[in-house]
Design a protein around this nucleic acid. Structure first.
Lengths: 115, 115
DNA sequence: TTGACAGGTAAGCATCTACTTACCTATTCT
DNA sequence: AGAATAGGTAAGTAGATGCTTACCTGTCAA
């Protein structure tokens, strides 16, 4: 699978694949914040946070609002819907409702393969 | 955020962050398959697929069963629950139910900050 | 207007990642 | 037994990632 240099910037899955960025979203789910405030609880420099925010921005997971010299970032959760929908497909598997059917299908497929 | 060399191996989010691995899970959701069958539809060599399966295995997203010289991989969806739970937390945001409250909280926080 | 603050951005670096090819072991088929 | 098949694993590589420091612009306050 080709991965252009900006994959994580666009792909919600990749964007959320990083634990720091997940923490950022969690933090922003409490309400909008200026960068300085966002960066404070993290053990990394502000530019690093800025870069993570840039990735979240390009994945449309956050929005910015300028106010004087500050930039307030706020959560924009809707792209997470894509992940939600994808995972939801698998819900039936871990809920066990499909175990029997799954096994049945597996067996059927094995028969198929033998032909 | 420190990332040991095997991060993706353990972290479900990272494991699922890769599009190829997502496709693998989708494929396996139809039933178990031997590696050769799994690799067929992918435009990449079998060892590459083997490595991806290794990562999914360490993330406990798949299980293997040996049968002669073949190894049947099958989906083990339950770790996806973690992602589901995490995303579900944000559901209320994109459903818009919290927009008004969100704005209210933002406003409150701004007042707070001004003090 | 000069300095301090907010924050984006470039350059550089160490490491990780997603592949490849080459090779090895276990099993089955003749 | 010997060849073919299934598939794991090592080593190498190009490029992506996650940081850092250095620097720049825009805004506010004295």
């Amino acid at each position: 699978m080709k991965r252009s240099p900006l994959t994580a910037s666009r792909d919600v899955f990749a964007a959320v694949g990083d634990p720091t960025r997940r923490r950022l979203l969690d933090l922003l789910s409490r309400g909008e914040l200026p960068v300085r405030r966002i960066a404070a609880p993290f053990a990394m420099t502000r530019p690093a946070i800025s870069q993570h925010l840039g990735i979240l921005l390009r994945a449309r997971l956050v929005e910015v609002r300028r106010d004087g010299r500050e930039r307030y970032y706020r959560l924009h959760a809707s792209p997470l819907r894509r992940i939600h929908d994808w995972v939801r497909h698998y819900e039936r598997f871990w809920k066990g409702k499909l175990t029997a059917l799954g096994d049945f299908l597996d067996a059927e497929e094995k028969k198929e393969r033998r032909r």
